[in-house]
Design a protein around this nucleic acid. Structure first.
Lengths: 187, 187, 187, 187
DNA sequence: ACCTTCGGGACGCCCCGTTTCT
DNA sequence: AGAAACGGGGCGTCCCGAAGGT
């Protein structure tokens, strides 16, 4: 029996996640000290740890939400669209989180294990969509879907890396065109 | 002039850098505590900080050495060769350091400023070489050198990211072929 | 005059005290965090601190109740009877509270001062009763009442200590017989 | 290969243990915060935790040392002598530690398990000595050795409890005489 | 009135990078 | 070059008061 309205709760969680996103993106996971989180979020430790058990859970919630959203976009519009969105409106928060996710996969066993399956969701969404597009004759047919998927995924990682590093966006439009030209069927 | 001790000195520095590389790569910059560094290097704090003023200098020396080596390879054989080497013999240490460099650029103002010029060295090496290749008729001519350079750099970042994440190497050969096909002149 | 609600009030207080007793006994005063109290009592912070101003008051109420009860038993049946009851039906809650009381007397100035007079109540009850028994010829007469009182008090403290430590009860019956033999008049 | 002399190390450990003893005795285990330990010991956190892995290890070392010393005294001169020493020269530090040991046995599972065997050492020393004394005809023969041992142990616990509570020593001499009279052979 | 949830911020322990002593 | 010492600061817990709901 929720004594406090469901919405208020959700709003608070959102406020916390939102501030945490900024903090993690700007300072990195380790660099985002609880003190910094407090300031960015605008709430005290007590409040933050009342809604999330600990710092890592806070980060995980963020990572999970982003992964879900991305999986949905990939399934609906493909990886290239994810990249176009990124170039059109780069979100420093989102980018930072992505980077921190891959870093934590590398350095933190606990996180790696907890994450494991998450990663596969997006991967399979990508492959499913590419396969369908190939059958529809949109993709070039001389290259294996698996290779194309790897190509795109690798490219996305590179894009994230460079955008997060502050690479100016305007140079990247033509780069994406080149990518799309590589992947699509040539007339 | 004590020649022997100079060699010893260099060897010690090398031992320290080598251990530090492994530690930074495996645990990340923050995760590589001085205690972990001691263990990985096989020397005590006293020894380590006798040769390097502090932890950040140790990391910086590593980063600088790798950047220099890469700039040389790029100038001599091009970015694609860097990638081929990487796929052929991925060095977890090197990969980790690269990732940590870009992370520190993002999150640590001091490092960003200290690094600044380093980055440009490789960039200009890349562009110089591409320009020469274009003139030699090896590169496709319908795309600007700047765009190609960006394309390749972005791709390298993506490659580093995925290799560091443990992506199996055997899938990446065809991906590199695809990349090279995109960049070279089509008959 | 609302009789029903007064009963309810007393029942609630009793529920709280009872749960708190278990928590304090099992975890010690500091170890019994408010969270543990909540779980043991089955009510939330708000409820608990609605009836008691704070954690220390909760403990104090418990301590006071036990001291009163013990003073009454001592006056009526003597210290040895308190021990017999203890051996017959050891109450882990009661034992724990006794131990925590003496601990807080030792370590917490505030508590020590607040408790002060409490202790004397039992002491004088003991002496009064012993004096009367001596006059009645039940006690051995070659030893001062004050010494006997100290002997018994010390013994009770030892008994509490060992019972709380989980010492098996069955070994203690003969020990108490020995004690009683020491104190009573020898034929 | 110890770069620092064995004695210095031992002296430091002793300094730390000695300060910690005072702190634990005066404030109790939980009450002895690291800050208080620092002040009492006269060293910083860094130094303390350089010699002991954590607070609980510090306490355990203390407890172990005292238990060993007591076992030795018991084996050599018996439990009663331990008590006489105590009454003659009560050591607030030692008393406090004893009390905290029994408290931690009660409230901390980890400690209880780690301690387990320690307790038995003293117990068997007591029984061995009593048995020998009985055979030598010093002890009363109408009571089982096991009962006498329990009697004495219980009494010691009581003595510790009251001494730690600040009970004046001068009243306890006759009490000990009474105890000894109870245990020895009557002519 | 009674109870729950939320929020605050002081403080607990210990780890960290660094400096100083041997 | 290693061991010892330092003290700032990390995260998370703790107790409690305030806000809100029934």
């Amino acid at each position: 029996m929720p004594r406090v309205s469901e919405e208020r709760l959700a709003a608070r969680r959102q406020q916390i996640l939102s501030g945490a996103r900024a903090a993690f993106a700007r300072h990195g996971y380790e660099g985002a000290t609880v003190r910094i989180l407090e300031e960015e979020i605008g709430l005290s430790r007590g409040a933050i740890f009342h809604h999330f058990p600990d710092k890592s859970a806070l980060f995980f919630a963020l990572a999970r939400a982003d992964a879900d959203a991305m999986a949905a976009t990939v399934a609906a519009h493909g990886l290239v669209q994810v990249m176009r969105n990124l170039v059109e409106k780069p979100d420093a928060g989102w980018l930072g989180i992505q980077l921190e996710i891959s870093r934590r996969i590398r350095t933190d066993v606990t996180f790696r294990e907890a994450w494991a399956e998450r990663g596969r969701t997006i991967n399979s969404a990508t492959r499913t969509r590419l396969q369908r597009q190939k059958e529809a004759g949109v993709l070039r047919s001389d290259v294996d879907v698996e290779v194309l998927a790897n190509y795109l995924e690798l490219f996305l990682d590179g894009l994230i890396s460079r955008l997060a590093a502050g690479e100016p966006v305007d140079r990247l439009g033509p780069v994406l065109d080149l990518l799309e030209g590589t992947v699509r069927l040539r007339r």
